[in-house]
Amino acid sequence: MSAHAYSPAERDAVYRVIRERRDMRHFRPGPVAPEVRQRLLAAAHQAPSVGLMQPWRFIRITQADLRQRLHALVEAERIRTAEALGERGDAFMRLKVEGILDCGELWVAALMDAREPYILGRRTLPEVDLASVACAIQNLWLAARAEGLGLGWVSLFDPQAVAQLLDIPPGGQPVAILCLGQVDAFYDAPMLESEGWDRRRAVADCLFENQWGSS
């Protein structure tokens, strides 16, 4: 074992929070304490980022009317998604896909503008800035679970409409609407799996050796 390894109890805690993280849709009203909010933001800001560009920006939504307008944009996209799903549309409409009106905190994670000067690690793969934002969201997600808070990532929206609503400058891009807050319980399994929408793949199905498709 590496001399740099954590203690067994510490390792168990890390693996537990990864295992028990859930994309939450059901919340109960209640604020998130400011000191907890700051710890979560600090965890997000410690995420790895390509070229140390730190491209994440978080917009905290505190106005009730703005929350309602974001919810309306998500609902419009939910209906369009159901139409695109064809025969599975009715089943999709029965799923609860967001908790925007229920959660204690509502944040929007976005890519910053003026990213062009950052070329370290991005010259051939400029989209890895988006991966950096995803890493920050994952840090936030895991920290929230450790704090006993639920977090749900909502991606059902028109990015241009959300950008216009929130005055995101040209070149910036909303990535996720994040519902954060108190929950009565965490799901035993991912909700889409419990609802029979899809199943989690086996690890072996996602691992190749040397060449694509080789095991």
Rank of each mutant, 00 (worst) to 15 (best):
E98C: 13
P190K: 09
P117K: 06
Q211R: 15
S2F: 04
A72Q: 08
E209V: 12
F27H: 07
H71M: 12
A110Y: 13
W107P: 02
R78S: 03
P29V: 07
Q182P: 12
S2G: 07
V183Q: 11
A161D: 09
A42G: 02
M24W: 01
L52T: 00
P190M: 05
H26W: 07
E195V: 00
M1A: 10
K96H: 03
A143K: 07
S214E: 11
D205P: 09
E127N: 09
E35Y: 01
S214M: 04
S132G: 13
S49M: 04
R78M: 01
F186Y: 14
R69T: 13
G148I: 04
A9V: 11
V17H: 14
A163P: 15
D102G: 03
Y118N: 14
D205I: 13
A72P: 00
I61E: 01
R21D: 08
R28M: 13
V128F: 10
V108F: 13
D90Q: 06
D188N: 08
W141Y: 14
D167P: 09
L111I: 14
F186H: 05
Y15D: 05
E147Y: 04
A110I: 12
Q38H: 02
H4S: 11
A44L: 15
Y6N: 08
P34V: 05
Q63T: 06
E98F: 07
A42D: 13
D158R: 06
L130E: 15
M93G: 00
C206I: 14
G89Y: 11
F186C: 12
P126A: 08
H45W: 07
P169W: 05
T124L: 15
V32N: 15
E87D: 13
T62A: 05
E98Q: 15
D12V: 01
A110K: 13
T124F: 11
T62P: 01
G150M: 03
A146C: 08
S155T: 13
F92I: 04
L66H: 09
G51T: 08
S132F: 02
L106W: 09
R80Q: 07
R39V: 04
P170E: 15
T62R: 07
A82S: 06
A91K: 07
V108Y: 07
R199T: 15
D102K: 03
A84K: 02
R25K: 04
A144L: 04
P174G: 01
Q68C: 08
A176E: 02
D167I: 07
A72I: 03
G89L: 09
E75Q: 13
V175N: 00
M93P: 04
W212C: 06
A144K: 09
A44Y: 04
A146E: 14
P169V: 03
L120Y: 10
I59E: 03
F58D: 00
P159H: 05
D23T: 04
E35H: 11
V154W: 03
E20C: 02
N210W: 10
